[in-house]
Structure formats: structure tokens, C-alpha cells
């Protein structure tokens, strides 16, 4: 495993344990998980006990010690999504992928995560696939999305656009604009 990037990341911050969290975040971003060798290297460079690094790596949910699948599906279970049926979406995706939240499919294609609020409550229930939001989910739509992803094509599943019936523009010249 090539750990040059880890060294570069640490060099960018300076070898101080106060930056450990940022270093781990960047490693996670770089490799999509925290390789054990990278953690061991970081512990040495930052002069931290390996146990402390391991503790951080397992404490924060942003980190994973296992490689993630090609598609990381995050089903939002924030409060807003929950009251709109987020749990049912998760169940549907679990059923479709035949894995539980927190697992990766055996072919390495999908990782499923249940997350708490991605901050886009208005679009709930929401499923994020590799940082791309899929809004207004229903269990049926979620299943479809997975099938599409597995087949390699992604169609946006979106809210119906505003009705296009009222096409007649209003002439504003009769109504002078305010402000």
C-alpha cells in the first residue's frame, strides 16, 4: 500500500497531535476508508499512541476501517425524514440489497449506511448516493433507484415539476413593480 499521500497530508498540517482529527478526515477522503497501515503511520508521525488513533477512528462515524463499496448509499433517518417514513425507505433498500445498514454487498458494489440528517430536510425522505441527493423517496422509488444503480444507469428520481398549465405571462407594465 502506497502511503505517500498519508505523509503528504501530515506534512501539510505539521506533525502535531492537535491536527489528528483533520489528518484522519483527509485520509478517509483519500482512501475512502482508514487503512490500518495509514493509522499506524499517522500514530508514529503525530507522536500519539496507536490506541488513541484507533479510538478516534472508531468513535467518529465519519470514519470507516473497512473499504466502502462503489456506491455508498446513505439513507437519512433524521427526524424530518423519520416522520416522513425514512425507516421504511431503509427497510426497502435493505431488502433490495440484502444487507443491513453498515454493511457492504459481497460484490463490493454497494455500501449501505443509515445516517442522521444530511441537512436537507425539505427534500425528505432523502437518500444520498455518493453525495448526490435523491429526494422525496418512497420505498418503491428507492428500490427502483437501487436496481438502476446496479444496472449501471442513474436516472434522477425527482419531485414532479411545477404544473406547466398556467403559461400565460402577466404583463407587468400595468402593475408597476414595487421596491
Amino acid at each position: 500500500m502506497n502511503l505517500d499521500r498519508v505523509n503528504q497530508i501530515i506534512n501539510g498540517y505539521g506533525a502535531d497531535r492537535a491536527v489528528s482529527l483533520a489528518v484522519l478526515q483527509d485520509i478517509q477522503r483519500e482512501y475512502n476508508y482508514l487503512p490500518r497501515e495509514a493509522l499506524e503511520l499517522a500514530a508514529g508521525r503525530l507522536d500519539m499512541p496507536l490506541g488513541e488513533i484507533y479510538r478516534m477512528a472508531t468513535f467518529f462515524t465519519a470514519f470507516s476501517l473497512q473499504p466502502k463499496g462503489e456506491y455508498v448509499c446513505k439513507v437519512c433517518l433524521g427526524t424530518a425524514c423519520h416522520v416522513r417514513g425514512g425507516a421504511r425507505i431503509l427497510e426497502a433498500v435493505e431488502r433490495e440489497l440484502d444487507i443491513k445498514a453498515g454493511q457492504t454487498t459481497s460484490d463490493g458494489k454497494f455500501s449501505l449506511e443509515a445516517v442522521r440528517c444530511v441537512g436537507a430536510c425539505a427534500l425528505g425522505p432523502i437518500v444520498m448516493v455518493n453525495e448526490e441527493p435523491h429526494a422525496y423517496m418512497t420505498p418503491d422509488k428507492a428500490s427502483k433507484l437501487i436496481v438502476q444503480l446496479a444496472a449501471g444507469k442513474v436516472e434522477r428520481v425527482e419531485a414532479p415539476p411545477a404544473p406547466r398549465s398556467a403559461r400565460a405571462p402577466i404583463d407587468l407594465s400595468s402593475v408597476p413593480p414595487a421596491g
Binding site: 490500518r36 499512541p49 490506541g51 488513541e52 484507533y54 479510538r55 472508531t58 468513535f59
Partner: peptide, 30 residues
């Protein structure tokens, strides 16, 4: 940590999953 300064044992995970053990919960030469 404080007395032995070996820093072998530490917590991992959080909440009800919290555990005590050496890094990666494996035998360690440390």
C-alpha cells in the same frame, strides 16, 4: 496511560458499543 505510560489499553467505539482493549482489539507487543 497515566501511571504506566504504556498507552496500550484504550476505549474504542462509543455508546453502548464502547469497549476497552488494545489497538484493533488485538494482541500487541506494546
Amino acid at each position: 496511560h497515566e501511571l504506566v505510560k504504556a498507552d496500550v489499553l484504550n476505549f474504542s467505539q462509543r455508546g453502548i458499543e464502547r469497549r476497552v482493549g488494545p489497538p484493533f482489539l488485538e494482541k500487541t507487543r506494546q
